[in-house]
Design a protein around this nucleic acid. Structure first.
Length: 978
RNA sequence: GCUCAGAUGGUGGAACUGGUAGACACGCAGGACUUAAAAUCCUGUUCCCGUAAACGGAGUGCGGGUUCGAUUCCCGCUCUGAGUACCA
């Protein structure tokens, strides 16, 4: 029979599903291999041809590994909490669970028809209570943990409490809030429970804090930094403003250094590692305190005393009378000629002298008005204002001016810098603009036209470091600052703690209730805390999150609380209401978790997806360990991929998992872009659009406006005019100005999206060519990691290849016809070439080149008229990861039991079949190939040289001249230098 | 601005550690089969000179270098894409 792909594919997809062919084993002697795809958010639009690219690659890899004898875990699931379902719910009133369910069904149907070898028995959905129970459980573990810097790991909060009870706060080195209390053990014990809890909250790995958040009024929620682009929400493009809010945060900064160091241990693309490094933004430097000279009073005494300087500090404590700056170049401190603080800095007001008040206020107002975008656009210019106050450089006692400027960011470091105009370009521009001194501090520094940040040369104008090199100077300055009590070495990170609350409905509820204004965990046995029903998915009139709409949604203190909990609650016991199991009702936390919560640990759930006692059994985690190969887009570099590493490290600290890093090897598949087509509408003199459309080649002669046109009614950029007229009613009477009788459309490469009419749907292609063709064509398109626009033009070639392959097994009348004859040398050579080639290609994820190699092999075998079982059976195995359906069918036709192909051993490569006696040596003269000569491979270089020089054709090229040199590379080339 | 990736025929791309540049496919041109079309098959297809072939010349973004030999390594530049952005 002819190649009936539709019937074959349907048949085998059904077979695989019914027989659970791809179910990973939990007990086996086989080595394990874990191949993971980034699970999709099931959007309403379904899959377009770009989505399966990575899935096809991982599926080929997973299938290949099974042939190679591995127990492969290759699961799939859905990241099913998220904004779009909720926004749809707001518009339609339909529960997001219903739309999500419908979208998942579409995704599943589309995925199934591509023939993936997923183990669907392990499917997870982040929005399912069975799953988010464990997301909440991990939240509880985070809440119950603190980061011990001495041990460099997370530890139970109970250990911290023990320490406080015995020794007070001394001896604790933790990653915690800035303003923690110092206390003795007695003082700790004297605190009320509430005060204790308030204090502990400053240590917990997830904690509540008033933070400045990205508030998006249109979406009614808080967004993470990576969800905001240029001051607008990534989703929807609504304006985002800064707002102060009580928020759950994750102390990811505790792991900053481990997240950075771990990058060196994993096999990830370098650009992606670089993005994470930049995001973490480690800089090694020093904190330096500059004492403030009080603003001059309107009194006859010109210079203020030190006592009055102390009074300028509004807060007292550490900052008393000083501005603290962070610098990575403490060695340049003698070049400091002024200080600059951010306009938002808390000392701006006390430092401003009455004389400068108007200037400073005007400047602050001006910066406030500037949007993020404007500040970026002006990156080249600097502006600022003088506060009127002065500070003292601790190393030389110089009196320097204190300025404010918006090039200093309040959110980084201490929000204040020591300006060294000779070494920093921004400081240099600032000094030039406001006529401040510029002092060169290194002998070879050239500061004629711009700052010179060199570290070469010797220091000058620099007191006790004069004559030293950079290395010596840096260490000496920091030592001196420490001695003076004016500074210390400090590592600073750009990364901030991650905000963990969203004022939305469609997310995991936070397993917390509030008592006396403090958060308390609900008990583990009460998990999951299920998302309540609400009447509307909008914030309340008073601005509370949607969960505030849930009626009777309150926490009831449980009667069966653990003894420990009970002692903690002792104080309240009297106030609890009477009655069995009837606690007082408390408010639950009303915000939900962010989108990244559920995706930060899901790969563990696949290991043991139906466990209702644990997130995954110890045994399963010990067997599967971590993900061997992870394929997904690079857009998750500083979101999902960073948070996942963070949670993994935390879980490792608690001995819940055994690997420090979750994803050993990562591949970023490229993005398939859309290829949009345009028609050009003629604009009349009045500036109105007409009903006439100009072909692309002629648009220069007219005034036109481009309009996206559906790519499905365009072929090879030629518009199908009849289809265009019926595409939309308003084009029914459209007229055209053609070139060469055709309407040529314009082309642009853009993101694939509905609104641009450039979406190519896999369903149509599968209907026309089959899934095996689609799979191989997507791989054939180019290197996996490269982004490229979708172009269906070459798909015919792949389809023809599969038909040709099918034909090898059939005679002219399409009868299955395979011979048992011994294969010839040439046939074995073709086979073993492809055996090795595919091994090499899969190992380096070069799937496009193996597709062409398959074509070569099938072309060769077709030319050889080979229909021998000994060759074709192995061909079926090798091709099966790429085109599984056709191969399953042929496998059975060859007489093998159905369903065994996926686990049959990959053919063994035998180099003996590739050994040649002769090689057609390219003979080149001065590096230019002239002719090829067949020479026995057993000849040694010397004999080859003699043979070549004796050749008549070569003699002709030599033209009687004696060669200066002859280079012979055995088995490669002969080059004659004249 | 900085960081990273990339630039090869009409198109997608191949050439893995320096060794025959353009594999494989698309497209295009010509041909076979056919009343015709579709499908299928065959031939050609980097560019230039030449009637065609032989033959000759140029050629992997641009300019230089190293080498017997460079798409590959080094230096400088141009352009494209991605990320990031006053990070002290």
């Amino acid at each position: 029979m002819d190649y009936q792909f539709a019937a074959i594919e349907k048949k085998w997809q059904k077979f695989w599903a019914e027989h659970q062919t791809f179910k990973a084993e939990d007990k086996t002697t086989k080595p394990k291999y874990y191949v993971l795809d980034m699970f999709p958010y099931p959007s309403g639009a379904g899959l377009h041809v770009g989505h399966p690219l990575g899935y096809i690659a991982s599926d080929i890899f997973a299938r290949y590994k099974r042939l190679k004898g591995f127990n492969v875990l290759h699961p799939m699931g859905y990241d099913s909490f998220g904004l779009p379902a909720e926004q749809y719910a707001i518009q339609t009133g339909q529960h997001p669970a219903i739309t999500t369910e419908a979208n998942i069904a579409t995704y599943r149907r589309q995925l199934d028809q591509i023939g993936f070898s997923f183990d669907w028995s392990r499917e997870v959905r982040t929005s399912s209570p069975d799953y988010y129970k464990w997301t909440q459980w991990i939240f509880i573990q985070l809440f119950n943990s603190w980061y011990n810097k001495t041990a460099d790991k997370a530890e139970p909060i109970s250990k911290l409490v023990e320490h406080f009870e015995k020794y007070g706060s001394t001896g604790i080195d933790a990653v915690c809030d800035e303003e923690v209390l110092s206390f003795t053990a007695d003082e700790w014990r004297a605190l009320s429970d509430n005060d204790k809890q308030a204090e502990l909250l400053k240590y917990r790995l997830t904690y509540l804090r008033e933070s400045t958040v990205n508030w998006c009024a249109a979406l009614g929620t808080v967004l993470a930094n990576d969800e905001v682009k240029d001051g607008f929400s990534e989703r929807g493009g609504y304006p985002v403003e800064q707002k102060k809010m009580m928020q759950w945060s994750m102390r990811i900064t505790a792991y900053a250094d481990r997240l950075l160091k771990g990058l060196d241990t994993i096999d990830w693309p370098e650009p992606l590692k670089e993005m994470q490094r930049n995001w973490i933004g480690k800089s090694v430097g020093a904190l330096v305190k500059f004492r403030i000279i009080a603003p001059p009073k309107p009194s006859p005494v010109g210079r203020a005393s030190e006592e009055s300087a102390a009074k300028v500090s509004p807060t007292g404590g550490d900052l008393e009378g000083a501005i603290e700056v962070f610098t990575t170049r403490a060695d340049t401190i003698f070049g400091t000629t002024f200080l600059v603080i951010a306009p938002e800095h808390e000392l701006v007001e006390p430092l401003t002298t009455p004389g400068q008040k108007t200037t400073i206020e005007a400047y602050i107002n001006q910066t406030k008005k500037k949007s993020e975008l404007e500040r970026m656009a002006e990156a080249k210019t600097v502006s600022g204002a003088f506060t009127g106050s002065y500070a003292i450089n601790p190393v030389n006692g110089e009196k320097i001016q204190i300025w404010i400027a918006d090039y200093v960011l309040a959110g980084y470091g201490t929000g204040a810098v020591m300006a060294v105009p000779s070494g920093d370009q921004r400081d240099y521009l600032f000094a030039k603009q406001y006529n401040l001194p510029i002092i060169p501090i290194i002998d070879i520094q050239n500061i004629e036209t711009e700052a010179d940040p060199t570290k070469e040369g010797r220091y000058i104008n620099s007191g006790f470091i004069n004559g030293l090199t950079y290395k010596e100077a840096a260490a000496t300055v920091i030592a001196k600052l420490e001695e003076l009590g004016a500074g210390k070495a400090k590592v600073n990170y750009r990364m901030r703690d991650a905000i963990f609350g969203r004022q939305r409905y469609w997310g995991e509820p936070v397993p917390v209730y509030f008592k006396d204004g403090l958060p308390h965990l609900i008990e583990e046995k009460d998990l999951p805390l299920v998302l309540p029903e609400v009447d509307k998915y909008l914030p309340t009139e008073s601005g509370e999150p949607p969960l505030a709409r849930a009626s009777n949604w309150k926490y009831q203190a449980s009667p069966k609380s653990s003894p420990k909990e009970r002692t903690l609650k002792e104080g309240e016991a009297a106030s609890l209401s009477f009655g069995e199991g009837r606690g007082e009702a408390y408010e639950y936390e009303l915000s939900t978790m962010p989108g990244w919560a559920g995706s930060s640990w899901y790969w563990y759930r696949y290991m043991d997806a139906h466990n209702d006692k644990e997130f995954a059994s110890k045994q399963a985690v010990e067997y599967w360990k971590n993900v061997d190969l992870y394929i997904g887009g690079s857009e998750h570099a500083t979101g999902h991929l960073l948070y996942s590493r963070f949670w993994n490290k935390f879980m490792k600290d608690l001995d819940l998992v055994i690997e420090e890093e979750p994803f050993k090897k990562l591949i970023n598949q490229g993005h398939i872009q859309g290829r949009s087509n345009f028609v050009y509408r003629l604009i009349d003199d009045a500036g109105q659009g007409t009903n006439t459309f100009i072909s692309h080649g002629l648009i220069k002669q007219y005034k036109t406006s481009p309009i996206h046109v559906d790519v499905n009614i365009v072929e090879n950029d030629i518009l199908d005019i009849n289809k265009f007229k019926v595409w939309r009613p308003e084009y029914k009477n459209a007229e055209f100005i053609l070139e060469n009788g055709k309407y040529v459309c314009g082309v642009e490469i853009e993101k694939m999206s509905k609104s641009k009419f450039n979406v190519v749907n896999p369903d149509n292609l599968i209907e026309r060519y089959g899934a095996d063709t689609l799979r191989m064509y997507e791989m054939f398109l180019g290197p996996l990691e490269q982004s490229k626009p979708w172009n269906t033009n070459g798909i015919e070639g792949v389809f023809k290849f599969l038909r040709k392959f099918w034909r090898l097994f059939h005679d002219d009348a399409w009868n299955f016809n395979v011979s048992d004859e011994e294969p010839t040398k040439a046939e074995l050579k073709s086979l073993h070439k492809i055996i090795r080639k595919v091994e090499e290609d899969v190992d380096r994820f070069s799937f496009n080149t193996s597709v062409s190699s398959f074509m070569i092999a099938v072309n060769e075998l077709t030319d050889l008229k080979c229909n021998k079982r000994a060759i074709l059976q192995d061909m079926v195995i090798i091709l099966s990861p790429y085109a599984p359906h056709i191969c399953e069918e042929l496998w059975v036709l060859l007489g093998n039991p159905a369903g065994t192909l996926s686990y049959t051993p990959y053919p063994k490569f035998n180099a003996a079949y590739l050994i040649e006696d002769e090689f057609a040596y390219p003979i080149s003269i001065n590096g230019k190939t002239k002719i090829n000569l067949n020479i026995s491979l057993s000849l040694e270089s010397k004999d080859i040289e003699a043979f070549v020089l004796a050749n008549a054709d070569v003699q002709k090229y030599l033209d009687g001249k004696a060669p200066k040199k002859v280079i012979v590379v055995k088995g490669r080339i002969v080059n004659i230098v004249l």
